[in-house]
Amino acid sequence: MSIMKQLKEFTIPFVGLKQGKHHFEYQIDNAFFEHFEYEDFNDSSVKVDVIFNKKETLLELNFKISGFLNINCDITNEAYNQEISNEFNLIVKFGEEFNDEEIDILILPHGEYEINIQQYIYEYIVLSIPTKRIHPGVEDGTLDSEILKKLEELSPKLKENKEDEEETDPRWNTLKKLLTDK
C-alpha cells in the first residue's frame, strides 16, 4: 500500500473483535475516489458489504460490491450509469513482514492489531468496470448522438445484394465455362 493518508472509517481494529463473523457496510461516492486522485467517474454510488471472519490464526474478508458508476462511453463520450456488481475474497495471514504481492492474500507482521481496507475497496471497484465502456443506448440503438451519426456515415456500407458480392472479373467466366462444359 502507498503512503497515502488512511481514512479512519476503513480501518478495522480486529484485535478487539471476537472470533467469528462481523459485518461492515460502506457507502462509496466520488469523495472516496478523490482521496485516491482518481477522477474517471462523473458520479458514483457504490455499496460495499464486508463480511469479516476472524479465525484463530487468520482473517477472511468477503467484499460484495454493488451500485453504479457514472462514466463516459468509449464510443460516443456520452455519460451513462454503469451498473457494477462483484464479489472478492481476501485472506489475511500473519508472518515476519508485510507482504501484499498476492492479489487475494495479505500478510501482516505479527503484532498488528488493525487493518485498513480502503485500498482493496478502491481496487475492487475499479476492477469491476468493464474494459469496454459502452453506453447501453449504443448497443440497443436508442441513443441519439451526433458522434454515432458521424460514425455511421463514415463506416463502409455492407452490400445488400448477394449477387453484387459475387461479381467477378469477366475473364474468369471463360474458365468457369470450361468447368461446366464437360
Rank of each mutant, 00 (worst) to 15 (best):
S2G: 08
S2R: 12
M4G: 00
K5T: 10
Q6E: 14
L7I: 15
K8R: 14
K8V: 04
E9I: 03
P13D: 12
F14Q: 04
L17M: 10
I28D: 01
D29A: 07
N30A: 05
N30C: 04
F32R: 02
E34G: 06
F36D: 06
Y38E: 12
E39D: 13
D40L: 02
N42C: 02
S44M: 07
S45C: 02
S45G: 05
V46N: 03
V46H: 00
V48H: 03
I51N: 02
N53F: 11
N53S: 08
K54A: 13
K55A: 14
T57N: 13
L58Y: 12
L58V: 07
E60S: 07
N62Y: 12
I65V: 13
I65W: 01
S66D: 04
L69N: 10
I71K: 00
I71H: 04
T76M: 01
N77F: 12
Y80N: 07
Y80L: 03
N81W: 03
E83M: 07
I84W: 03
N86H: 12
E87L: 10
E87V: 15
E87S: 15
L90E: 01
V92T: 09
G95D: 10
G95P: 08
E96C: 10
E97L: 09
F98W: 11
I103G: 08
L106T: 02
L108D: 06
P109L: 06
H110I: 10
G111R: 08
I115G: 05
I115Y: 07
Y120M: 03
Y120G: 00
Y120H: 08
I121T: 03
Y122M: 05
V126L: 03
V126A: 04
S128A: 09
P130S: 13
K132H: 11
P136Q: 08
P136K: 06
P136T: 11
D140V: 09
G141K: 04
D144P: 01
D144R: 10
D144I: 10
S145L: 01
S145A: 12
L148A: 11
E153C: 07
L154V: 11
L154Q: 15
L154C: 04
K162H: 11
E166G: 13
T168F: 06
T168I: 15
D169A: 13
P170S: 12
W172Q: 09
K176T: 09
K177W: 11
L178K: 11
D181L: 11
K182P: 00
